[in-house]
Amino acid sequence: MTTQKTCFNYRYTLLALCLFFMLPTTTLASSLTLSGPESVIKEGYFTVSVHANDINELNRITIEVASDSDFTERTRQFPALGDFKDISLTGFSNGKYYVRARAEDANRQAYVSNTVKITVKHYPLWQALTLFFIGLVIFITLVATLLLLHRQWLHSKQHKHHD
């Protein structure tokens, strides 16, 4: 009895699995993985990478970026260059961005990746301007020192020449 029951369960599980794989899906989220930066982005640029599991040829890779996880608000698309699977994106303002990848295989089967959440928070402006003015002061001091010392040297050289 016990043996019969086990066989019955096993067959049903197999049947369920077969049916699952035969379902007419347009997207297989588990076959395409997107990875991106985990820390907060402070410069407004970052690189994301697409990884394919069990897909022979990946075509038309496109990265979608939106400001909501449902990809309904301000969704932008960025095509990858050729068959490269990394893509560098730039020029993002402060905010939270939801990023996912879309691609097709050789049979034009569409795939969508997992969603990666990326936070962009630029350095505070006061910090940037402080460094800017420190740099400006050092630069002016450097140029003034060089010009002054060089002029002094030229002057002393002319003086020696006249003597």
């Binding site: 932008r76 303002s93 630029h122 350095y123 402006l125 800017f132 740099g135």
Partner: peptide
């Protein structure tokens, strides 16, 4: 699409200049 690239007060870029 990429307003930050035209921003003259882009913090990291301001730091980068000098």
């Amino acid at each position: 699409e990429h307003p930050q690239l035209l921003d003259l007060l882009f913090p990291a870029a301001v730091m980068f200049l000098f």
